[in-house]
Design a protein around this nucleic acid. Structure first.
Lengths: 231, 231
DNA sequence: CCTAGATTGTGAACGTGTTCAAAAAAGGAG
DNA sequence: CTCCTTTTTTGAACACGTTCACAATCTAGG
């Protein structure tokens, strides 16, 4: 089992290097195998598909962002916490920014295994959401609201990444600016949302959102539960 | 020139029928050619790529939505106008809902010719935005705000379509419910945004948005303008 | 009708991601 | 070491989207 692990890592490193240099679509599985000093089939022995290489990168990159210790100093304001999180995330992604063009589009297709909404990426997604959840934890929101806000932040972060992928301004400063603009706009709303006057509106939002995120209802809710395949 | 037009339409019809029945990825260009009674190369004579077939559909579908007369009765409230527009759009798309899974993901990649952000689809996009612009026209917003709101609605509509594509609830009622929920939440904000108290906030939003949508600034803004390729 | 030129159609061939039967290498038990 | 099993590697082969040199068909002009 030692040999495989080593080769696997070597293939992945080779692939990512080529992806970064030439782009995802432009890099051939045959290129990767050749560059790694292997036959085509060997590459497929370690990675079931070209997408799997992309997914492995996605996963590793997520781990990198997680590696930053996400312990927020007590008293650090929400705006600062979110700012740090978003900007750091951009910096982590930056070296592989061109790869985003290959990954992002697939996020929109729930049937795609690479998608941000697919079952296959459920754990990576959960970990990503957890990062945002940690950032808002000190706010002590009621659990449903908190879960909702964390998801919303994660979704916003996906949008930011789409923008980032195509941002050709030097240093992608436009994206960083956008992050600051959005946070400056949204963060004050959190304080506002906690006033009693806003309570009904907040409730309305939470209700609508949880409705939308609920899985499809079965036609017959009564009767004994039977495990059936979700075709 | 008559023959070609006829064959072209025949190929397109055949292709769309197959796409609807079997899905986009699952349908082969060879399938299409065979079903249309042509050789493979002939299909490529009329459509430069498989994507071109998708794009032709995209365009035709947009025209279908436009065909509904978008003359809003005077006095019809904003909420009703938008509701009609969104729900009607969903109904127009519904017969080809499965095709969305093929189109939507590519919308996120600006480098993709099919993308909603690409130069190639600029006119279709402009026409789509115009639909939303017409719906908010009676509100008499200041032009920059109006343009922004129209674009925002269009973007929201893209998001709704993503949700729609994966909505397996009967009749996709979940998506229709989501549309209503979102409109119920957002429409009142428009009225709110027009109060003098909200003016600074609105200005802030408009400023941030136009910054984000501005094309990349050249490094040297001075000196004579020279047309240079945007590599 | 004929024929030159344009238009439209043909199908083999290319490069791609992926699969697979079989070969090679590695391990373990005797 | 030898034999057997498991792991790893190989490269030919498949179906796909796409290209292209060529063939068939159509259209004018004589």
């Amino acid at each position: 089992m030692k040999k495989a692990e080593l080769t696997r890592q070597h293939v992945l490193d080779t692939a990512l290097a080529l992806f970064r240099k030439r782009g995802f679509e432009e890099t051939t599985m045959r290129d990767i195998a050749r560059a790694a000093g292997l036959a085509l089939g060997a590459a497929y022995y370690h990675f079931p598909s070209k997408d799997a290489l992309l997914f492995a990168f996605y996963d590793a990159n997520q781990s990198a962002t997680e590696a930053r210790t996400r312990v927020y100093p007590t008293g650090e304001p929400l705006r600062a916490r979110l700012g740090r999180l978003f900007h750091d995330r951009l910096h982590d992604v930056a070296p592989n920014r061109t790869l985003l063009g290959a990954i992002i589009p697939r996020h929109a297709n729930p049937a795609d295994p690479v998608s941000a909404f697919s079952a296959e990426s459920a754990d990576v997604r959960a970990r990503a959401i957890a990062l945002f959840d940690a950032a808002i934890a000190p706010e002590d929101l009621p659990p449903p609201t908190r879960a909702l806000v964390a998801r919303a932040l994660w979704a916003a972060h996906l949008g930011i990444l789409i923008y980032f992928a195509d941002d050709r301004s030097p240093g992608q400063r436009k994206t960083h600016r956008l992050v600051d603009d959005v946070l400056d706009l949204v963060t004050p709303l959190v304080a506002l949302a906690r006033t009693p006057a806003a309570a009904p509106l907040v409730a309305q939002v939470v209700r609508a959102a949880s409705r939308a995120m609920q899985p499809d209802r079965r036609s017959g809710p009564r009767g004994p539960r039977s495990r059936s395949r979700a075709g």
